[in-house]
């Protein structure tokens, strides 16, 4: 009996470490974005509202696993991650709750989940870059489909099928073209690869200038990073690249998003709604665009000067929801075509 009393005492002491929050307002965020800009925005949010932002930064899928385990009583209030595929996975796992209509009203429909389980915060375009010294502007492939033409045999550089940006690209094609044509496209890319996929987006760009291939598919975000790199050689490489906004005459350039949603059963749901409204608000959107080479989600906010200098472009009309839903099928398809 003495032991039981002891055990209860110890347990109550331990529980005492986690008293009910009374005074301070907080919001707990799991995020897979690791940018100084995000931290700066959290600090501004705290300054404006007095709500402290606690963050765990990790990888999207791993944080999702943590959310799934914590389902009964989640410690996180919001989940932020890159790519619609990941956001959709969180939705399917049943860990997200619908956002208030008021929180996301100003965000265009395409950039939020159809059931309001998540909303996009920023977006990036997936473009084609080429070596200006070896490929003329007229000759450069103007569409994603053109990359599969015979003349680009052994000249295309692109990342692995494990990369979410490629998965989302294929997911958008599944929506636009259907399975058969997407499969043909993926096989065509595999045939035309200059080397087996490896490295990140920047490595594809460097390989284009090094001459391992002539064209590469990459994210505008990394192009912005390279042009402003602290490494002089990297800046030089970026300056030698020509950019093509693919599919301007047809379906538009593919765009992928980072997004955020509220965790189902969140203890600080109100604060989380406030944070999401803040991140999709004009001021935060302007800062994402100005310092992180990402495009704003909200139509009224203009992109940064660098992004504007690349010109305006037509986006794919496929909604982020659909891209998320197609992610699993797209990944399967890429792996099946032998895309490493």
């Amino acid at each position: 009996m003495r032991h039981v009393v002891m055990a209860v005492c110890v347990m109550s002491m331990l529980a005492g470490c986690a008293p009910k929050e009374v005074a301070e307002r907080i919001v707990n965020v799991y995020t897979s974005r690791h940018y100084a800009q995000d931290d700066a925005l959290y600090a501004q949010f705290t300054k404006q509202t007095g709500i402290r932002v606690n963050v765990i930064k990790g990888e999207g899928p791993e944080l999702l696993e943590r959310l799934v385990r914590e389902k009964n009583s989640p410690s996180a209030d919001a989940y932020m991650t890159a790519d619609a595929g990941m956001l959709h996975r969180a939705k399917s796992a049943g860990v997200l709750a619908p956002l208030d209509e008021d929180t996301v009203r100003h965000v265009p429909d395409r950039w939020r989940d159809r059931d309001r389980h998540w909303v996009a915060v920023t977006k990036r375009a997936r473009v084609i870059v080429y070596n200006k010294a070896r490929v003329s502007a007229q000759e450069a492939p103007q569409t994603y489909e053109a990359l599969t033409e015979a003349k680009w045999r052994n000249r295309v550089l692109i990342r692995s099928s494990g990369n979410v940006y490629n998965q989302s690209l294929a997911a958008s094609f599944l929506a636009l073209w259907g399975e058969e044509k997407t499969k043909q496209w993926a096989s065509g890319i595999v045939t035309n690869m200059a080397r087996p996929p490896k490295g990140g987006d920047r490595d594809q760009a460097k390989a284009v200038i090094a001459g391992e291939g002539d064209v590469a598919v990459m994210n505008t975000y990394y192009l912005g990073q390279m042009l402003n790199s602290t490494d002089e050689q990297e800046r030089l490489v970026a300056q030698q690249l020509g950019i093509v906004w693919p599919n301007q005459e047809t379906t538009g350039t593919h765009v992928n998003v980072s997004g955020i949603g509220i965790v189902k059963g969140a203890q600080h749901a109100t604060e989380a709604q406030q944070l999401i409204a803040f991140l999709t608000g004009d001021e935060a959107q302007r800062q994402f665009a100005a310092t992180n080479y990402e495009y704003p989600i909200v139509p009224d906010v203009a992109p940064s000067e660098l992004l504007r200098s690349w010109g305006t472009f037509r986006e794919q009309t496929v909604g982020a929801s659909v891209i998320g839903e197609n992610n699993a099928a797209a990944t399967k398809l890429l792996i099946e075509t032998g895309w490493k």
Binding site: A15, G16, A18
Partner: peptide, 12 residues
């Protein structure tokens, strides 16, 4: 006991 559901292992 009237305690909040503390994540006293995973949040520490």
């Amino acid at each position: 006991a009237d305690v909040a559901h503390g994540r006293w292992l995973s949040a520490t």
